[in-house]
Amino acid sequence: MRSWASLCLVLLLAIIVAACAGHDWASPGEVLRAIAGDPSLGARLLVDWRIPRVLAAALVGALLGLGGAVFQGVFRNPLAEPYLLGSAGGAALGATVALLVPLAVPQSVILPVLAFAGAWGATVLVIGISRVSGAVDAAGMLLAGVAVAAILGALRSFLMLALSDETVSLQIVLSWVLGGVQTPSWPGLGLLAVISAACLALTLLFARGLDMLGLGETMATSFGLNVPRFIMLAVLAGSVVVAAAVAFGGLVAFVGLAAPHVARWLMGPLHKPLLPASALVGAIVVTVADAIARSALPPAEIPLGLVTAVAGGPFFILLLARRLRT
């Protein structure tokens, strides 16, 4: 109980600090007055721009944490992360197409759709490959995922070289690939909130199966889990979560890797508490990282993915070191 309370409290603090942080720092009082309906221009800017952005960052972080917990549970590999199975590569490819190919549909609509389709398609491709080769286990999928991710990355680079005739569009693609939460409209934020809640509900359905899978595939089978089918469904669910995160936040590194570990330290390894806890940790991390991205080098904005990678890289090394020592 105490861990839950502290996690929620830390998230609340992070959101308040992030709402204050930015190009122009606001005091907590100004933020509260703006929420209460202060009609001044500064307050309107806070309500229309900064607060939706902060909440969107928290939700994207929650999705990343959730996706990471699902993927680490399925692959029972503490180094597994959502981007391992090519879903992020697929999303990036979809986004590149949306940004560089002139299409009749407005970019704000087509980018999330194509990113989502790319993530989904890549995951289905990975599952298909491992099925055809008869390796529908975690290791087989992991291998297929790494290969697909490499191919998709090369395709994206090729598209970027072949399709961008001006440096401007290349920069747009690059900033998206490096990660960054788009500032949503309030209805857009509502949609993201609904998607996030649905993702949490969806992944919680897999909590018990993920626990059983943690006993090893033999024991899980003897405990009544249809292991190949479960792995496939859980990977699909995980990629839905990742696709949503990527569509709204670009490619944000390391959060999906780190959040489940922190959550496991706090809550233990059972997935029913782990999944929501991992979402909370992810939300805290991305809220803070996004605040840093917005306010560290005004008026420029550092890509969010760079902030999380700079902070996450050392974490990853620490993790490896701990693992090698035991």
Binding site: L215, M219, G224
Partner: peptide
């Protein structure tokens, strides 16, 4: 099946420290 047949494996290494 899981209810009727108890199976004790030769090796058991849970991945998470339950």
């Amino acid at each position: 099946r899981a209810h009727a047949l108890g199976f004790v494996p030769q090796q058991f290494d849970p991945h998470w420290d339950l």
